[in-house]
Nucleic acid binder design. Sequence first.
DNA 1: CATGAATGAGGTTTCATTCAT
DNA 2: TATGAATGAAACCTCATTCAT
Lengths: 213, 213, 213, 213
Amino acid sequence: MPSAFEPRKTPVQARAAITVEAISEATIQVLLSHGAERLTTTRVAERAGVSVGTLYQYYPNKQSLLFAVLEDHLGKVTAAVEAACKRARRKRLSRMVKEVVEAFVDAKMERTDISIALYQIAAEVGGPALVKRAAECSLKALEAMLGTAPNAASPPDRFAIQMMFAAMAGATRSVLEAGASPAMVRKLREHLVLLCQSYLAATENSVASRSSD
Amino acid sequence: MPSAFEPRKTPVQARAAITVEAISEATIQVLLSHGAERLTTTRVAERAGVSVGTLYQYYPNKQSLLFAVLEDHLGKVTAAVEAACKRARRKRLSRMVKEVVEAFVDAKMERTDISIALYQIAAEVGGPALVKRAAECSLKALEAMLGTAPNAASPPDRFAIQMMFAAMAGATRSVLEAGASPAMVRKLREHLVLLCQSYLAATENSVASRSSD
Amino acid sequence: MPSAFEPRKTPVQARAAITVEAISEATIQVLLSHGAERLTTTRVAERAGVSVGTLYQYYPNKQSLLFAVLEDHLGKVTAAVEAACKRARRKRLSRMVKEVVEAFVDAKMERTDISIALYQIAAEVGGPALVKRAAECSLKALEAMLGTAPNAASPPDRFAIQMMFAAMAGATRSVLEAGASPAMVRKLREHLVLLCQSYLAATENSVASRSSD
Amino acid sequence: MPSAFEPRKTPVQARAAITVEAISEATIQVLLSHGAERLTTTRVAERAGVSVGTLYQYYPNKQSLLFAVLEDHLGKVTAAVEAACKRARRKRLSRMVKEVVEAFVDAKMERTDISIALYQIAAEVGGPALVKRAAECSLKALEAMLGTAPNAASPPDRFAIQMMFAAMAGATRSVLEAGASPAMVRKLREHLVLLCQSYLAATENSVASRSSD
DNA sequence: CATGAATGAGGTTTCATTCAT
DNA sequence: TATGAATGAAACCTCATTCAT
């Protein structure tokens, strides 16, 4: 089922792959330098060193271009989380959390420019849906992993995992938008691990509904 | 200091005030029904029941309209947090956190439609800067409050507070974008309190840099 | 016969006269500071210290305002020329020319800002017609005066007078647009007298159609 | 030096050149039929038989279009004057004047419609500056030429040349705006030659500051 | 009478997309 | 297949003019 938002042709030739990559990269650059509002297909093509016509050979319309870039990034981050989840199965809870959090942060920080640029697309129409779908995958992987924790009285419930993931995303975004200096990224990794660990531990002990005070 | 993004005239007459309010409200509605990409000044004016010209009597351009709405919302949330911080001074740490978190969530949930609509604006050019400025205020209030905690060995450092606030924002956003049913909002309040409490407690005990495992 | 371009009400009261004067003056100022393209009735009213509504009490539309200002200026210059022509009747030709030219230059230079500002209006639709009508009057006065010259073999023909007047206007404009410093104005007066005198003398001797070379 | 008012792209293909020419010509036509006030880019494009978008591919904005047309015309006239000045070097003064004046008038009259249309643009903001720059060139050429006159006691000073040129422009304009019938143009050529010749002769003899009477 | 908020037609400019070369 | 000129709908914004207060 060919959707209106999927790339038009799978680049079988090497040259095509290079072109697509250039366009993709150019999209990020234009997003950063001009903002989503002023991103135009012509500008992207120009920056990529190709003509608009060529751009339209690979993407049927502007939306598909934006979504492709966003999906690519989300896919990479999700894959990193899933891989970490797989690797960390059956380890101790705190270890699990540490490895996944670090995998997430590292994936996000590998190309800070991309991460920052895409916040703009993520907020546009259709963006939240894509993000949600990606999050769903990470969530599923997290849930599966946490179910294998040996020392857990009972695995954290779905809502707690969502909370944790949202906190991870929120904290990472905050650091990203503040500039993401190496020092801050280091602190983020450490603090985020701590935050998630302590939160999961807390939800285990207390049924959250009995929040004293 | 009259900037290019500030409202053009302060409505002195009663009718004008109504008009401005209608435009502001219409902006939210259009944002929700059409998305930021397809929000046009004409559409906003139409929805508000006035002519475009009238809109431009109060806002010098589209950006200023969007920013005004965003700033209004951020201002309200910030004010709620600041008030809660003031009220909770000298209470126990866990109590402080609970009150502030609940104030934040309540402020965000008072008009879920506005909160959701504005995520789109917050991501556009200039939006992050506005959000950052508002966050700075909340952060300062939080810091001041936490410094008055009686049973704290030492108040949490700035970075930890930033982490906590970012987690609050991220978790709230996640729930908002998932629909924000009353049940979910209730769980959010409880879990977020727990998350923040446990995190702050954890940072107090362990110097984060010594995260074992 | 009330035309669409004439002032709406003759200011009988003193206050009204002041208002009209203020609007008239403001028009010049806006013309100079913003240009004809960006002259708006609101801006003129603002500058004049009255409301747009008031402006429309005295002028039925923007055109009438512009034309009134232009006509006022043209009228003054024309009157100055006519008066000079009357005064110089029966004097020697060179004397006639000198007095008229100086009267013209002086009238134009009395308010250089007005003269400069109005070149913009004079070029707009309808402007040339007004200018032409005013020129016609000056031309008639010049012709009448020159007919009384005692020592002239035969009075200069109509075309020569037109040429002379056009040269006067052109030279004056050139100096005006170059800044019209007092020194330049002085030189203009002298040279323009010379130019007109020598031209008329030349047309008298040679029938222009026999221009040798 | 790429300014905001320079053409966007130089047409390399033959068709593009035709398009640019059509737009340029349409500008004149609209200027004549509607006036500068009511000249709109849409109307120009329509008249040129292209879409607005095409117009904006060659001119970044309305001003640049207007200025381009004006500069083109001024350039042609200036070139004609400069060429005449070069040709007339070392001839007798009266001959010089005759040739230059006729070259100027002929250049202006080659396309009377263009000359008339552009008076409107010349008066707008920025127009006078363009005109002045062009005049400067003609003036320089005139000065250089007059310096080579064999029979001149001393070459006319700069101000006199300015006066003469301004008179030429003024007289020509006057005829142009009066309809510029062939008969009138013929008379203009003859009278203007006479006027300039007699003026220059007069400045040579009398130091203007001693204008008796 | 004076005011100035409201109007909305219309102007300028952009930009996604197509298609002849 | 790649190009980039052309398109024209649609966005933003202005401003002459009116009219309720």
